[in-house]
């Protein structure tokens, strides 16, 4: 039991940190530019594929740096030559643009890397156990992923709180026009933030690819969950996205890990459900992929502004 709790917590945190790496960029872009970027998870997928291909030539560590930079540059180009032009036609046009972009990226990925998963794996030495608890190994790679995520968030915090660019970003979140009146190039700032958000998504792909499998469906699997995180956390709130990421990461992981059925849970609360009936025999593990969306529905009913949000979604 304790073993399950400890490992599920670790895995839940790891999954949550990956979710936050995606949702932080998404929520920053949303609150600054008003654009809900449907292609955000596609940049995450590109990160994984780029790291796979680059890694064959350069090895894992250089790819860890290069792939997110490449994804970020691609994101900046998309903003500069795509979104910025579409922007003049309003938010619906922007939304449709990112929606189409997601499909384009999906198709391109399938054309270049095929429709089945590629063998993108962490280096062999990182598959060794970092520690062993109750006979179960925790790999070095998972430890590295958690470490990279935490370093990333310290860097993000430092950027936003301690640098001049961070001040401009925070000012532009609420008063973009005024930042421009003071002589700062807001369109360039937008391009930078969009590129940076995409680079974060790319980094999540680089370190998440080996854990979650690198295949053309990976964007479609994670994309909706990232949106759930942003809405549950409160649209535009970084802090909210952080709590929601960890919450969803932990809930989903625990549902997978617990060996129980719906009947076990309901009957423990005093009900009398047939453990072999159609509803009762469903295991909690099969329900796991549904949990983020159940949470989404509950949040929208009971707290529409999200955990920390100020805006109504």
């Amino acid at each position: 039991m304790l073993e399950i709790v400890i490992f599920s917590t670790l895995n839940g945190i790891l999954y949550g940190l990956l979710l936050f790496m995606l949702s932080s960029g998404l929520t920053l872009i949303f609150s600054m530019m008003g654009v809900l970027n449907f292609a955000h998870a596609s940049f995450y997928m590109l990160g994984a594929y780029f790291a796979y291909t680059l890694g064959m030539h350069t090895g894992f560590w250089p790819a860890l740096i290069l792939a997110p930079l490449l994804v970020g540059a691609l994101g900046a180009l998309v903003e500069r030559f795509g979104l910025r032009r579409v922007h003049a036609n309003g938010h619906v046009a922007e939304l449709l643009f990112t929606f189409g972009l997601a499909y384009v990226i999906d198709e391109l990925v399938q054309m270049m890397w095929g429709t089945v998963a590629v063998a993108y794996r962490e280096p062999a030495y990182m598959r060794e156990p970092l520690f062993t608890l109750f006979g179960t190994d925790y790999s070095i790679f998972r430890g590295v992923v958690i470490l990279i995520s935490i370093l990333m968030f310290v860097a993000l915090w430092y950027l936003l709180k301690k640098t001049r660019v961070g001040l401009m970003i925070r000012a532009a979140l609420t008063h973009g026009e005024m930042v421009g009146h003071l002589g700062h190039n807001v369109p360039r700032l937008f391009m930078g933030v969009f590129g940076f958000g995409c680079a974060l998504a790319g980094l999540a792909g680089v370190i998440g690819g080996p854990i979650m499998s690198t295949e053309p469906g990976m964007a479609a699997t994670l994309g909706p969950i990232v949106f759930v995180v942003v809405v549950v956390g409160g649209m535009g709130s970084l802090q909210g996205a952080f709590y929601a990421s960890l919450l969803i990461g932990l809930i989903q992981t625990f549902f997978v890990a617990v060996n129980a059925s719906v009947a076990d849970v309901v009957n423990a609360m005093g009900a009398n459900l047939d453990p072999y009936g159609e509803l009762g025999r469903i295991s909690l593990a099969t329900l796991a992929p549904m949990t983020p969306f159940i949470l989404l529905v509950l949040i929208l009913i009971f707290r529409p502004r999200g955990l920390m949000g100020e805006l109504e979604p």
Partner: peptide
């Protein structure tokens, strides 16, 4: 007026510098 509400008074002034 459009002050930046989440930034401090000093940070508001500093952002005025071009």
């Amino acid at each position: 007026r459009d002050i930046f509400p989440t930034l401090t008074v000093r940070q508001n002034l500093e952002l005025g510098i071009k």
